[in-house]
Amino acid sequence: MVDINPSETSIHRVSAADGLELAVEVRHPAGDPTLLFAHGFGQTRGAWRGAATALAAQGYRCVSFDSRGHGESGRLAGGDYHMEQFVGDLRLLAHAELRKPILVGASMGGLLGLVIAGEIDPEAFRALVLVDITPRWETAGVERILAFMQAHPDGFASYAEAAEEIASYLPHRAGRKSEDQLRPLLREGADGRLRWHWDPALLGGLVSESERYQPRLMAAAAKVRVPVLLLSGGRSDVVSRDNVNEFMQLVPHAEHVELPRATHMVAGDANDAFTREIARFVQKLATPGRSDAAVA
C-alpha cells in the first residue's frame, strides 16, 4: 500500500479487465474497515463526497469511483454497455482491497452488489449497505430519472441553465447548485455547450435490458449471506413499501431503516442521518462475538 498521509484524498486510474480506465478516489487510505461506495445510474463518485468525508474522519478507509461511462472514467468506443461490465468493474475494485470491503451501493451500485454477493462471488464483500434499491422497483420512478437524463441532448448554454434544470428535478432541495458544484457534472463540447458527464450511449442497451434482470436479481438477493442494511427514502418514488416488504422476505436477516425525509437521492437529501446509520451498522459488525456472516 502507498504510504500517504491519512488525511489526504488521492485520485487513481485503475484499468478494468477490458482496459477501460476507472477514476477511483481514496479517502483516509490507512483507515479500517474499507467502505467501497458504488453510485447510481447517471451519478458520479461526487454523490458520496459528504458521506465519505465524514466517515473517513471517523477512521474508515473510503473508496469511491466513477462507473464506466460516468464522470471522469472512460467511455466505451461504440457505446455497447452491459451489466456484466459494471459487475466486473465493481468486483475488480473489491478484490483490489487488502481486506474485504463493506459495499455501500446506491440504486445501480446496490444491484451490482447483489449480483456479486448472491450469485458470482459471495466472498467479495464483508457486508452490503443498499441505498434505496431492491431487486424489484417502481417503474414510474425510474422513468422519471431517465426522462431527466434524456431531456437535453443538445446541452445547456450556461451553468445557470443546468442549475435550473436540476432545481426543477429536485424541487425539495433548497437553493441552486453553483458553477463550482456543477463543473464536475458537465462537459463542454466543441460547440461550446455544456452536456451532462455521462455517455449518452448508456441510455441505450443498458437501460432497455434492465427490467429483464429482475428475476436474476431476486434470485441473487435470496442467496446473500453477508450482513445487509437497506436504507430507503420515505419519499422515494423508486422503492415502495411493497418493494421493501418483498426484499425483507427474500433476505430475512437484513436490517431495514427508512429515512423519512429522503427521496431516492438518500445521501444528498439526508446526509447526516445517512452517515450515522452507516457508522452504526459498521460498528455493529465490529461488536465482539458477532460473526461477519449473518447466515451459517
Rank of each mutant, 00 (worst) to 15 (best):
A296L: 14
A167H: 12
I102P: 03
E123C: 06
R49Q: 13
G141V: 14
Q43L: 15
E246K: 04
A77T: 13
E209R: 13
A219S: 11
L90K: 00
I133K: 01
A293Y: 15
V251W: 05
V14K: 00
T9D: 02
A38Q: 04
T287L: 14
H28T: 11
L146A: 09
A124Q: 04
H264K: 05
L206H: 06
N271I: 14
P29D: 04
S178A: 05
Q214N: 04
G141P: 08
I4W: 09
T134G: 06
E138A: 15
A77D: 10
H28I: 08
E179F: 11
T134W: 10
F274M: 09
I133F: 09
E72G: 05
K177M: 13
R75Q: 13
P153C: 04
G155E: 11
G19W: 09
L130A: 08
H39Y: 09
D191N: 14
L76F: 10
D180K: 10
A151S: 13
L259I: 15
R193S: 02
L203K: 00
P171C: 10
A56Q: 03
L194H: 05
E97K: 05
D32Q: 13
D272N: 07
S107L: 13
I278S: 05
L76G: 01
F247W: 04
A52Q: 05
I120S: 03
G19P: 03
V224Q: 03
V63N: 04
V14I: 15
L90V: 08
L35P: 01
K223D: 10
R176I: 09
A219I: 06
A273R: 04
D237V: 11
C62P: 01
R173L: 15
Q214M: 10
Q58T: 10
H253I: 06
L231S: 03
D3S: 10
K100R: 15
S73M: 12
T263V: 11
A96R: 12
S67L: 15
G205L: 13
A47S: 12
Q43G: 10
E211Y: 14
P288T: 08
W196Q: 07
G113V: 10
L76D: 02
L35I: 13
A267G: 11
G109N: 05
E72W: 07
V207L: 08
M108I: 12
G113E: 06
L285H: 01
A254Y: 05
L76E: 07
V251L: 08
E258L: 07
F86P: 00
F125A: 02
D154C: 06
A30C: 14
P122D: 02
L130W: 06
F148D: 02
V295W: 09
A23D: 08
R176T: 06
A254S: 07
R68W: 08
F37S: 01
V2K: 07
A270Y: 01
D3N: 10
D199N: 07
D199L: 12
G141E: 11
D199F: 13
A294N: 01
A30N: 13
A273T: 11
A220K: 00
T287Y: 12
H28K: 09
I133N: 02
C62I: 12
T139Q: 14
E138D: 15
F156M: 03
A296G: 09
R235I: 09
L130F: 12
V266M: 03
E165K: 04
A174T: 14
H12I: 05
A54V: 04
G268I: 11
T134N: 05
A163S: 12
V244R: 01
S178Q: 05
Q214V: 15
